[in-house]
């Protein structure tokens, strides 16, 4: 037992032991998360090849459908498309192509898959991006209003309505909207990105696209905004009893400032992860909406590839969809750390 401690050791100003924990480096954190994302991507690439080979159906037969094709010709076609090679050889070819940035050659469109995807990526991002932005803003805004006035008429009607839309099947809602506002009332065009055969440019073109977007965007928003509303509402309710809100009120802040400056930033933390997780999924979920509204995007392309089945095209869209989801998760990780100072120390 030593008495060697001097009085100065004994906690002069503050105990030395409760120095703040040091923040780990951003770079290390980002590298770690990026590593995880790359591993997931590799798994997706492997899975993408084998998963679609399990699909029933013979692509060559469906290509030849409705045409007079002899058995020899079909064999020749199989040979050309490489279906007669062992699966392993096909797989290695797929990997080799992928390494050079090629996603293969679609036999239904007779075009490189990459070109097809790049053509369709724009419309899909336009549609899902718009829908995502609207549903996130709408959901979060309604959610925090509902939580702040829990039990009020506003809260009850908004949560009820959101849950009704959430439980409605996407294709059904799309079809109803299409029938009523497209077919019946003729307020909006029934499908496509632009009016067929249009030569408009500049502002008239944008206006045309906007009109075409209304119904698919409304369908997507209606189906997904509920989850943002519910999560925002739940996490704000959790924050509402926090002591720091009492501090803010005691300081003399107006109630809406207490909410905006103190409660909402904290409630956003758990919400952000969810938003990014679902954004990735939203792109994949475009398949139904794009099919219903004949929107020339990746979703429609996937649908068409599935009905063939067109393996290279399916693999391509699968890899693209998955990469978007993985990328969004990666972004969520980075953003969450940026938003929550407590995680920077972890």
């Amino acid at each position: 037992m030593s008495n060697a401690l001097s009085a100065a050791d004994l906690v002069p100003g503050e105990p030395a032991l409760d120095e703040p924990p040091r923040a780990s480096s951003w770079l290390r954190y980002a590298a770690l998360k990026a590593g995880g994302a790359v591993v997931s991507l590799i798994m997706v690439v492997l899975l993408g090849f084998f998963a679609f080979r399990i699909l029933p159906g013979d692509p060559v037969r469906s290509l030849a459908e409705g045409r007079r094709v002899s058995a020899e010709q079909m064999d020749l076609l199989r040979e050309q498309l490489g279906f007669n090679d062992p699966l392993l050889t096909q797989f290695l070819r797929y990997l080799a192509d992928l390494a050079q940035g090629r996603l293969g050659y679609s036999y239904t469109y007779s075009e490189p898959v990459l070109n097809l995807i790049l053509d369709r990526l724009g419309p899909t991002l336009l549609l899902t991006g718009t829908a995502a932005l609207i549903s996130v803003v709408l959901g979060l805004w309604l959610g925090q209003r509902a939580a702040w006035r829990r039990g009020s008429l506003f809260d009850r009607t908004q949560t009820g309505l959101a849950l009704v839309f959430w439980s409605v099947p996407t294709f059904w809602l799309g079809l109803i909207l299409l029938l009523v506002f497209g077919g019946g009332l003729h307020w909006f065009p029934t499908g496509g990105l632009v009016t067929a055969g249009t030569t408009a440019t500049g502002f008239p073109l944008l206006w045309d696209i906007a009109r075409h977007m209304v119904l698919p965007v409304v369908t997507m928003v209606a189906v997904v905004y509920a989850q943002y509303l519910m999560v925002m509402r739940a996490s704000l309710l959790e924050e509402m009893t926090s002591d720091y809100l009492q501090t803010a009120r005691a300081k003399g802040l107006r109630e809406d400032l207490v909410r905006r400056r103190h409660a909402v930033p904290n409630a956003l933390l758990p919400t952000v992860t969810l938003i990014f997780l679902t954004l990735g999924g939203l792109v994949g979920g475009a398949v139904t909406v794009e099919t219903v509204f004949s929107w020339p995007g990746l979703g429609l392309l996937t649908f068409q590839a599935l009905s063939a089945p067109d393996f290279p095209l399916l693999q391509g869209t699968f890899v693209v969809f998955s990469s978007i989801v993985i990328g969004m998760n990666f972004l969520a990780d980075l953003l969450y750390r940026f938003l929550d100072p407590r995680l920077r120390a972890a």
């Binding site: 926090s242 009120r249 005691a250 003399g252 904290n266 933390l269 100072p341 407590r342």
Partner: peptide, 24 residues
């Protein structure tokens, strides 16, 4: 009331716990 709060009387809450906003 809001203008009286903090200028005429202020409260020291149990700050060791959760009385400060964690993200500011």
């Amino acid at each position: 009331l809001r203008s009286v709060r903090w200028t005429e009387a202020a409260i020291v809450f149990q700050g060791a716990m959760h009385s400060l906003n964690p993200v500011r």
